[in-house]
């Protein structure tokens, strides 16, 4: 492995900075290391939506877990920092702080996480309203029952949940409704950063659009920042200001969403965008040949080279450098590297 990424010099106005994150899963009895996140860096500015896109198994959910600080075996982090601004330019490194501080000070208050399959995270023994009350209590916020009811009424109304749902147990609600309850919970303490991992999997198109437009509306209103992780490029097109495209544990392209969608540079992004089927299109499309690599034993050099139509000799041997193009745009490909031979 080659440490190639140039250090981020200034944190600037960023609210969250992930630096050189390197992590993966250990399979002890088979002596395997599944290198799911390889030297990934990104920054999140205030009042923006950053999308992380990629196919299944590219490491995007692992990255989300690391950023949120939920590092439990077999997941390990070998390198990197995740700095978050907890107010007044006071930066805390999530990866090196102790769990209790993170739980009390960061989770939910500064950084909220809407997990994948969020319909299955509620406690089945507790009524929905108790989930809200306990979250508030845990963070030491004294509120009257009336305020909780008012909050839930307001937010349930905007996500399309009946107000009676507060008195229900989780199993009495449908999967889509539970998902919306979790979203309401995650936004309750008005966090500065919301991390949404596939917020709309397993819902139909109408509900998907409803949830996403609610999140977008909320983001604009509170001026918080949001990280949206999804494999669905339609979700990214709708939500993102900036986007990071992941392939096999690397961010291969990163920058302004409009540029990535209209004029992508990396061959993987190009092929991916070309293979997407848009509404009202019938012309024959081509997929990308081959399939994503096994992360326990990734190909040498650029991880995309076995599928890349532009693969050169160097791609098979050396990992490409990240090339900066203008301000805040990066692509990890030998085609754009100045030092290419």
């Amino acid at each position: 492995m080659t440490p190639l990424y140039t250090q981020i010099n200034s944190v600037g106005s960023s609210i969250l900075v992930a630096e050189n994150i390197d992590g993966g899963y250990i399979v002890p009895d088979r002596r395997l290391f599944i290198h799911a996140v390889d030297n990934v860096s990104f920054t999140l500015e205030g009042n923006e939506v950053l999308g992380i896109a990629g196919e299944s198994g590219c490491g995007k959910s692992t990255l989300a877990k690391i950023v949120y600080g939920v590092i439990e075996p077999p997941l390990i982090v070998r390198r990197g920092r995740v700095l978050i601004d907890v107010g007044n330019r006071n930066l805390i490194d999530i990866l090196s702080s102790d769990r209790e501080t993170i739980r009390r000070e960061i989770m939910w208050k500064t950084l909220s996480y809407i997990p994948q399959n969020s319909m299955n995270v509620l406690n089945p023994m507790k009524r929905i309203r108790d989930h809200f009350i306990e979250t508030l209590k845990f963070h030491g916020i004294e509120v009257s029952k009336k305020d909780v009811v008012n909050y839930t009424r307001e937010v349930f109304n905007s996500v399309g949940l009946p107000i009676d749902a507060t008195n229900a147990y989780p199993h009495q609600l449908s999967g889509g409704m539970r998902q919306r309850v979790v979203i309401a919970l995650a936004l309750m303490l008005k966090p500065r950063v919301v991390l949404a991992d596939e917020p709309t999997t397993a819902v139909d198109v109408v509900t998907q659009l409803g949830i996403l437009s609610f999140l977008k509306e909320w983001q604009k209103e509170t001026k918080c920042s949001m990280i949206v992780i999804s494999h669905d490029m339609g979700v990214h097109a709708y939500m993102d200001n900036r986007i990071a495209i992941m392939y096999a544990g690397n961010i291969v392209e990163y920058g302004d969403a409009e540029k990535v969608f209209t004029d992508p540079l990396h061959p993987y992004t190009k092929l991916l965008i070309e293979s997407l089927i848009k509404k009202g299109e019938k012309s024959i499309k081509k997929g990308i040949l081959g399939s994503p690599p096994n992360l326990a034993n990734p190909p040498p050099g650029c991880r995309f080279h076995p599928r890349c139509p532009y693969a050169m000799d160097i791609c098979r041997k050396e990992e490409p450098l990240e090339t900066r193009i203008g301000n805040n745009y990066r692509v990890k490909c030998w085609l754009y590297s100045n030092s290419r031979r």
Partner: peptide, 8 residues
């Protein structure tokens, strides 16, 4: 309601 993979 279709979300197309199109930035527009």
């Amino acid at each position: 309601s279709i979300l197309e993979p199109d930035i527009r």
